[in-house]
Design a protein around this nucleic acid. Sequence first.
DNA 1: TTGTACGCGTTATCAT
DNA 2: ATGATAACGCGTACAA
Lengths: 350, 350
Amino acid sequence: MSSASPSTVSLVTTPTPRPKRATVHDVAVEAGVSRGTVSRYVNGERYVSASAREAIEAAILKVGYVPNTAARNLVMQRSQAVGFIVHEPHSLFVEDPNIGEILLGANTALSEADYQMAVLIVDSERDTERVARYLSGGLVDGVIIVSARAYDPISRVVERLNLPAAYVGHPPGASTASFVTIDNRGSARAITERLAATGRRRIGMIAAALDRDSGADRLAGFTEALGDRFDERLVEPVALYSYSAGRDAMQALLERAPDVDGVFAASDAVAAGAMEALRAAGRRVPDDVGVVGFDDSAWAKRTLPGLSTVRQPAAGLGRQAALLVLGQLRGEAGAQEVQLESEVVWRDSA
Amino acid sequence: MSSASPSTVSLVTTPTPRPKRATVHDVAVEAGVSRGTVSRYVNGERYVSASAREAIEAAILKVGYVPNTAARNLVMQRSQAVGFIVHEPHSLFVEDPNIGEILLGANTALSEADYQMAVLIVDSERDTERVARYLSGGLVDGVIIVSARAYDPISRVVERLNLPAAYVGHPPGASTASFVTIDNRGSARAITERLAATGRRRIGMIAAALDRDSGADRLAGFTEALGDRFDERLVEPVALYSYSAGRDAMQALLERAPDVDGVFAASDAVAAGAMEALRAAGRRVPDDVGVVGFDDSAWAKRTLPGLSTVRQPAAGLGRQAALLVLGQLRGEAGAQEVQLESEVVWRDSA
DNA sequence: TTGTACGCGTTATCAT
DNA sequence: ATGATAACGCGTACAA
């Protein structure tokens, strides 16, 4: 059972008779009324006689009419849709434990307002151009952007088009766009303080993704919390919020500073990796070393002992971003900055 | 730092001057040529004189023209976009370790063919109707559907519209649509056989999601592999592919059959839960009990010891589904059934 | 209450 | 090589 070419089986072979779809016109002639009347009926306006209504209903059923949204969008000058753009999807979709909740939160809010959400993935140069075209084409009335990078072409397009937009996380560059975040810095400070309150004297941090503001802010909060006791030799930076990075970093940290008795990992995945390294080194958690993480993802509940961490209101982030866009769609002017409250979850790892 | 209402800060308050976008017409008058010529230039056709080209390029830059895709779609009768529909998103986005890879695989294939992928989430009744309208509206030329349920309204719409479609997993009902799967049954058989080959005599299974074909097929493969040695009292069924379900099920199984020395869990998450229960019961893995899972997700690499499991070609599933749709779009007729090969990954848990 | 006619922004056909 | 002009399918003043 090794990886091989897929086995294919043909089932049927009807020559795909692409059917031409019925239009308002077809319904009109079938019902013996004018196109205008049909259009009014479809859009639920008043001033449609009972007789006309019946005839139209029957006609619609008979010819199998479904309105063409593209045509409607064209004349209405709006699409009743909002794009959800996700960058760097490899780290996001596969690693980020929050992306799913963010998506669902945004979708719920948009759905309630009768907007369709279309998730657009940017995973290559081609994607960038194509998505830019898509946005330019009037297929969405606004966008939610998650994890944008600095000098992001997509952000530029959005700005140039003057498209109502909201970012999840800090928008790149100096753009004055709406965005929603959590207080990474304050949360990091809070959990570090609680870790210190357990009596730890030599507290280190495995910092990750310092090129993103989330990563940088968490380190800043950590530094703030420790004040005088901060020792930069106890900070081990890694590139990604990943399990293996956490494991390797903890190993390095243990070598450089064998006396660490507390660790703040920049994410739960990192923390889980760190705990593995600690176990391998014969250190007990929390007895010898206290560990805290960030995210309250599935990792936090499956470590042994359970991981103390910071809970992000992921669905709330998506929901707020959606509300921000909807507000702009309603004409509410001005960029808004929304900060959602996070929460320290105390378990047994510290 | 408790969950509270979001703090909001207003940054600017310009009254959103929704700008009217330039059209082909504007470019034409600016460049002193006809709309037809502009259109030809934009679409890279031949027969555009150098002088016209220059004038048009300048005009486009000056008026800031971007083509309107909605209008183009209307006249071209195609959108160059494919919908990716995901159901039951709560279990999918939040729990399914493969969904991200499937999305990316599909996106890559579509992107190469210059198609835009739009992910549509169905999370409520409202969503169902809205997405159905969206599909009916001509905004996508085809669809990829993952995790459809039987009697799914969306599937009905797709069928009625005769929209080119491909399912990831078995399509519901008796529809003769294209789909791509892995051989759940064969894979389950293979890994069970390898587990048996390690000398285990009393092999049980924690079966999950028996109402889906993936779950049912895995159980079938397990049964096949054991043949005469199959003992239905060693099968513990649970509803979801979840960690906690695995833990509880393993506990129940241990009580009912303390002599189990091998367990096939229907997914890695389930297996991880089972391993936790075994540890709590004082059983060593793999010494006392061998454990194998399914998925080769992040769970498998973070259990201790590493989990032997079945690797799904998740990205390949998405890619193949996309290729299936693209084939239909090119006019290749007939429903296709593609089965991708999976692979047993042997680690230390058995 | 209903029909007519125009416009949304683009591509396609056909002369020129 | 280019310019009219007719679609594409729909909403909507305006007239009736």
